[in-house]
């Protein structure tokens, strides 16, 4: 159980950090420091060039080639102002004094701080990932449970429609949707609308899983007994079947969340991704998919770890739930 608690903690902290991205990041995500294009992660030092140990970590400034002046890493520094809920703040978690720069994860081709973008990108990507996952899972669970529980022609038609919907060329509808959205819609909202549509369209796979589960559960002794006692179908679904489906749904979420985060890559291929300069894990990863970046700038790969961490936490939680309930897996 310890592991699951840890996973929950990590998951929560990822979300909180994303929420507080403006505070936790040293510079705004859109600021282009053009003279620092593709700068590698800044070397944070404890030892100066004479070999003397410094208690407070520091960096050297690039403009100062002789590396004499140390710029210590400071906490709760003043910087550009941002909105946190109703209040305007200008404190940032950490930073260094100009002209030194502190790029924890390096910069991209415009000289934008990758660390700031990773945090801010989490906001969009996590929202998008969860939004689409919840939509897929809730529609999928509803239809899957219906199909599995009632069976017969209902089961048959739901499953066949699901099959068909997997092959339909939905992306034309998405292209059309993008064409109908006014140009003035902010980048993030436009993307969330599209990913919500993608989420709704993704019901078929979870539906199949839930259907299988329901088929197995409805023959269980306690379900048959409940039915014998005159329980209504709605009651059985609500009381016996859905709770047992929970661990499976969490595991499904572990698969779906990263999938929907990455769906942006495909979408941006079609001009349906988030527009510049708004960052997301999807468009940060899209940048690495180019050969020249992959071989030249290794730090651009780091964003791939973010969705992986989310997925791993969900897997751990799903497994723990599964073990505790001793329920039928999947």
């Amino acid at each position: 159980m310890l592991k699951a608690a840890l996973a929950c903690g990590v998951l929560a902290s990822i979300h909180v950090t994303a929420l507080l991205a403006d505070f936790a990041s040293p510079v705004p995500f859109a600021t282009q420091q053009r003279e620092y294009a593709f700068a590698p992660p800044t070397h944070i030092r404890w030892f100066d060039r004479e070999g003397g140990f410094q208690l407070r970590p520091f960096v050297y400034a690039r403009v100062d080639a002789t590396n004499v002046k140390r710029y210590p890493v400071q906490f709760f520094v003043h910087g550009s102002s941002y909105q946190l809920g109703p209040v305007t703040l200008d404190r940032h978690l950490f930073g260094v004094a100009a002209p030194a720069r502190l790029f924890l994860l390096g910069t991209d081709g415009f000289g934008r701080d990758q660390f700031s973008r990773l945090l801010a990108g989490g906001r969009i990507s996590l929202t998008a990932g969860w939004l689409a996952t919840i939509l897929s899972l809730s529609i999928g669970t509803g239809l899957g449970a219906l199909a599995g529980f009632y069976g017969g022609w209902l089961d048959h038609s739901i499953m066949r429609i699901g099959e068909a919907s997997l092959t339909l060329p939905w992306l034309y509808l998405l292209l059309a949707g993008r064409a109908f959205l006014p140009l003035g819609v902010p980048a993030a909202s436009a993307y969330l609308i599209l990913i919500a549509v993608v989420g709704v369209l993704g019901w078929a796979r979870p539906a199949r899983v839930v259907r299988g589960l329901t088929l197995a559960l409805r023959e269980r002794g306690y379900v048959v007994a409940a039915r014998g006692f005159g329980a209504t179908s709605g009651y059985i679904l609500r009381r016996h079947i859905l709770p047992d489906a929970l661990p499976v749904l969490v595991t499904q979420a572990a698969i779906l969340v990263p999938q929907y985060i990455l769906a942006e890559l495909t979408l941006s291929f079609l001009g349906l991704g988030i527009d510049e300069p708004v960052p997301s894990w999807g468009n940060m990863l899209a940048a690495v998919q180019h050969y020249n970046i992959l071989v030249s700038y290794w730090w651009m790969l780091v964003p791939a770890l973010a969705p992986a961490a989310v997925s791993l936490c969900c897997f751990a939680i799903g497994d723990a739930l599964l073990r505790r309930r001793r329920a039928v897996p999947l």
Binding site: I255, P258, I261, A308, L312, F315
Partner: peptide, 8 residues
Amino acid sequence: MALLLSIP
């Protein structure tokens, strides 16, 4: 597996 899922 989680890492594989997250690599485009």
